[in-house]
């Protein structure tokens, strides 16, 4: 592309708006992180740095509730992300390496369905479904719902990656008498690794973060971290909630950062 004079491209004020945008996006998170280290009992006054609310999360009166919720959240997230990543990888193979076929558009529509249907509608529908088939709501219903809505989040990075890998690598392997299965596991999968890892991590975060669907399909007594936090926040924002929020947001940010760097590393070049 011909070089265009920078003066024509740039608009005064756009840089300021971008910086403002970043401030708006990060300020609430930074403020809550800072206040989670507040020594004060009240959330309004600042009384110096302390880790007391972190200790409270692990040993305080509500610690048992948070531990169970954290256990549920993380085990569900790991299983849902694993299952949805496997399902998405198979689907991506058919969609990207399966040539043209009539049901391709329909399949893509079905895979992206959880992204198009409003979350609250999915939540209501899933609740009604489990009710209609007479399935008791609890841990298992949460897991199944999470596997379903995590599929598109795993699918998108995986299929994007597969589209970027030419099939000549596999063709070459098969010309040299590798079976298709060998070409899949020894050639395609290693090349796909960054896409699969980032798909897994995104699915993991989406599962860990979900509130609305979980809130509908969880039975009485089964809590995940977001539903436990929501229950507490209804009675007012307490400092221990800010500590637990800070921990949870750190997990998300670390995961997304890993996913970013993994998907950026390109082993085909």
């Amino acid at each position: 592309m011909a070089h265009v004079n920078e003066n024509i491209k740039t608009y005064k004020g756009f840089r300021t708006i971008t910086l403002f945008c970043l401030v708006v996006l990060y300020a609430p998170l930074v403020i809550v992180t800072i206040y989670s280290f507040n020594a004060s009992q009240s959330i309004t006054n600042w009384e110096g740095l302390s880790l007391r609310w972190y200790a409270d999360v692990f040993t305080g009166p509500e610690s048992a509730k948070f531990k169970t919720a954290a256990f549920n959240s993380f085990t569900i997230a790991i299983m849902a992300a694993t299952a949805s990543t496997m399902i998405a990888t198979l689907a991506a193979t058919a969609m990207v390496r399966g040539g043209q076929f009539r049901l391709r558009t329909v399949s893509f529509g079905l895979i992206s369905l959880p992204l198009m249907v409003p979350e609250i509608v999915t939540a209501v529908a899933t609740l009604i479904f489990f009710n209609a088939i007479g399935f008791t709501r609890g841990y298992l219903t949460i897991l199944v719902a999470h596997i379903a809505f995590c599929i598109p989040f795993a699918y998108l990075p995986i299929s994007a990656r597969m589209q970027g890998i030419e099939d000549s690598f596999e063709q070459a392997a098969m010309d040299l008498y590798a079976t298709r299965r060998q070409a899949f596991t020894r050639i395609l999968m290693p090349l796909m690794a960054p896409g699969i890892i980032s798909g897994f991590l995104l699915a993991f975060i989406v599962s860990l973060d979900d509130f609305i669907i979980t809130n509908f399909v969880k039975g009485a007594g089964v809590e995940t971290l977001p539903t436990a936090i929501f229950g507490s926040v209804k009675q007012g924002i307490k400092p221990n909630i800010m500590a637990i929020s800070t921990m949870l947001l750190s997990v998300s940010i670390v995961m997304v950062t890993i996913s970013y760097f993994v998907s950026k590393s390109d082993s085909t070049k």
Binding site: Y26, V32, D209, P226, I229, F230, S245, L248, S252, V256
Partner: peptide, 8 residues
């Protein structure tokens, strides 16, 4: 920030 829990 989008990947941080919406509730939080």
């Amino acid at each position: 920030p989008y990947w941080v829990n919406l509730l939080i």
